[in-house]
Design a protein around this nucleic acid. Structure first.
Lengths: 145, 145
DNA sequence: AATTTGACTTAGAACTATTCTAATTCATCT
DNA sequence: AGATGAATTAGAATAGTTCTAAGTCAAATT
């Protein structure tokens, strides 16, 4: 899939507008890249994929667009160890699994309320507004992708 | 406290020996720095603190020592967002709280079994050998340090 | 006790992901 | 059409960390 659907386009426009920013072809294309292949690409990977759809785009713009998308709340950054930042358009609360063999990062859905429940371990003085849960390990063999 | 106690020295020697490495004055001093002030210092901070006890030490050696301690299992790295890596000699399973105001990182003790239990959300093909739980937010006012 | 060996330390260069800068382009508003 | 300001761009700069190559040191061997 090459272009952003009408629905996604409106999601983007609304979210950007809400944070006082404008939809642009570059932002739409980058957003489309993230929606099309949800494998937590790095900025480099987003750049490569975006360039194949819009050859004139620059790395700086990719970083700018990603930052814009993050600030508008449409995309989340995923940082694991000291590896390059990855980008994730999955807005539902979820955990991540980081495969030591391939370096790949997988979304792990969690039952509703699970992430919020975790804050129960926090002593009262800590007011958490975000919870991050990352597993690291291996995929059992016989699994693909 | 300036020097490593006999007990800690033996812990260090044993752990290093176990991974085929040697205890050295630099490694002992860096380890002592981490044990003395458990505030998740960055390499820069460890360097500054170590230098005040052993002025001739170099940044490269601090990185080397930290890496040695990590590889021997005595110290854990704590990575939050893209901030500099922090170092933590707390080996018990625990979570972290990252204060958005100060950037400080706090250990959050969790009930025995809690971290392990989290792996229940993982589909079978994911074999986790480590679980990382990080909260981000603010400290309610009226609390110190 | 001198020599060898190999691990450890060190200074500085190199690397990499990301951010910054300053110039240009572009769309919108008068 | 001209002005305004946001967005894009190339390349320079930055920062944390790792690498390199030379020097040091302690233990093992002669």
């Amino acid at each position: 899939m090459k272009l952003l659907g009408q629905e996604d386009k409106e999601t983007l426009a609304t979210a950007l507008d809400h944070s006082g920013q404008r939809p642009t072809p570059q932002r739409e294309t980058v957003f489309g890249v993230l929606l099309d292949q949800r494998d937590h690409p790095t900025a480099d990977e987003v750049y490569a994929r975006t360039k194949s759809r819009m050859p004139s785009i620059s790395m700086a713009t990719v970083y700018n667009c990603l930052e814009t998308l993050v600030s508008s709340g449409l995309v989340k950054q995923v940082n694991i160890e000291r590896e390059p930042t990855r980008y994730c358009p999955n807005l539902a609360p979820h955990a991540h699994f980081h495969c030591r063999d391939t370096g790949r990062v997988y979304d792990v859905p969690v039952p509703v309320g699970t992430m919020e429940k975790l804050t129960d371990v926090l002593p009262g003085k800590y007011q958490a507004d975000s919870v991050e849960l990352v597993f690291r390990g291996h995929l059992s063999k016989g699994t693909s992708s």
